[in-house]
């Protein structure tokens, strides 16, 4: 599951997507150590569903596009494999169905309680994470590494960095 060489190290993945006007979605994955220091970053080129995909996927379009397509691509591409992927977008939980890496939504106070059961939640650092309903072992496996995350760690903050990096990428590369 983890690409970490040392057992006292935890690699965290932070994944976000943003919509680029008229060009679809791009996604980014930042790998950090347990203290939030960045180690690797990957982002995709924009991808947009065609009309057929829109019709056939219906409500499952976004989870497929963001979770399976963008999420899996990013996770396959990073050289440093994370022990956990954190996101703010519940659509990206779909990624868990295509990888062995636990995927969790970092909940805000407003979003807390919106779906999922309590036994799918885990307090990690200063954040509450909600895991995929169908993958029961994720919370337990993370419990064992919980001590590696400092209590003061804010797991929402790196997601902000990813969004900023994606916006910068759009400004620099794609907005031409």
């Amino acid at each position: 599951m983890s690409g970490s060489a040392k057992t006292d190290q935890l690699r965290l993945g932070f994944m976000e997507t943003i919509e680029v006007d008229g060009r679809g979605h791009i996604g980014g994955l930042l790998i950090t150590n347990q203290n939030g220091r960045p180690l690797e970053f990957q982002c995709t080129t924009p991808v947009r569903a065609n009309r057929t995909q829109e019709i056939l996927f219906g409500e499952t379009l976004k989870p497929w596009l963001l979770g399976e397509l963008i999420g899996s691509t990013l996770l396959e591409r990073v050289a440093i494999k994370p022990s956990l992927v954190v996101t703010s977008d519940p659509c990206l939980l779909e990624l868990r169905n295509h990888t062995q890496v636990p995927v969790a939504v970092a909940e805000t106070a407003a979003g807390k309680g919106a779906g999922g059961t309590e036994n799918r939640r885990l307090q990690l650092g200063g954040s509450v994470l909600r895991f995929h309903d169908a993958h029961h072992g994720d919370v337990d496996s993370l419990q064992k590494q919980k001590h590696l995350i400092p209590d003061s760690a804010d797991l929402q903050e790196p997601l902000e960095r990813v969004r900023e990096a994606l916006a910068e990428t759009v400004r620099t590369v794609f907005a031409r």
Binding site: E40, F41, V47, L69, I70, L74, R77
Partner: peptide, 11 residues
Amino acid sequence: RIPLKCIGLTL
């Protein structure tokens, strides 16, 4: 799966 291109950065 539509193949996607990626831009990478190793710190």
